[in-house]
Amino acid sequence: MKVRFWGVRGSIPVPGRATNRYGGNTSCVEVRPRSGSPIIIDAGTGIRRLGKSLMDEAFGEGKGSAAILISHTHWDHVQGLPFFSPLYRAGNQVEIFARQRDLHLEAVFSQQHDAPYFPVPLSAMHARTGFHEIIEGSTFQIGDAQVTSARLNHPWIALAYRIEVDGASVVYCADTAPFTDLLLGQEFVHSPTMELTPAIRAELAAMRAGVVALARNADLLIYDTQFTPAEYTVRPHWGHSRPDDALEIAREAKVKQVALFHHAPMRSDDENDLILAQYRQVVIDAHDPFTIVSAYEGLEIMLGDT
């Protein structure tokens, strides 16, 4: 399979010279099995360009089909959907998967698409769309690919995904806080500290074990590393991790490669270079058996049988 990054940024798109190399678009990753349709993870602004490139293929003739896995519906993970060109072409088929929540998934997306926020209602899209609600932990099939999900520690809850196909596996773990300091979920957490009752500790430990199990022996682990350790200290309740957290999970799960992902909006390319260099050294010093990259727009990673 081929993994290609179309948007690597967290929170909000950041155009400008300081982000030219890593890119300013929000989260979107394309997983392309050797044969079969694309599986897209998240629909941040990066999906706009992906959609345009897909229109050069079968989608341009209204004969394409794609699956979109949504980690969660925060704006930086869904903003690009109304700008995904294949949706506007009759004959295409787009299947959208996301976590089951109180409001029906289709209603959530309809709200995003409709007045007073957006001029084109979802019902006006010409492609056929299907909405699939997932329960965390469930496993399902998309073409030849097997997809598994796990719960993450993020406000309003997010899902991690593992995709296995062509004898390889990629795990997408965004957005999540580490599993040590706070439990994030349906309640709004105002404060950076939380009393960790035994029940909360147990829930966090179970969530962490679920993530390690999901990432077990993965060829590539894509991980939310929005924060530096200093930034995390101030904002642990925002629901994002440090590179240190990604490396810890990678070690335990024995993954082969880690991609730093979901870069902070104001992080310049030069700062991202420094962070990567710093953690490459950490990996070398620890004799870790995996390699580390920092995701940038246009990065392609081939995995498994090619």
């Binding site: 010279r17 030219n20 300013g24 678009n25 700008f83």
Partner: peptide
């Protein structure tokens, strides 16, 4: 208009 447009090709006028 419509959606931010990051990338080197919008550096001069801006993508916000």
């Amino acid at each position: 208009g419509s959606i931010p447009a990051p990338g080197p090709e919008t550096n001069r006028y801006g993508g916000n």
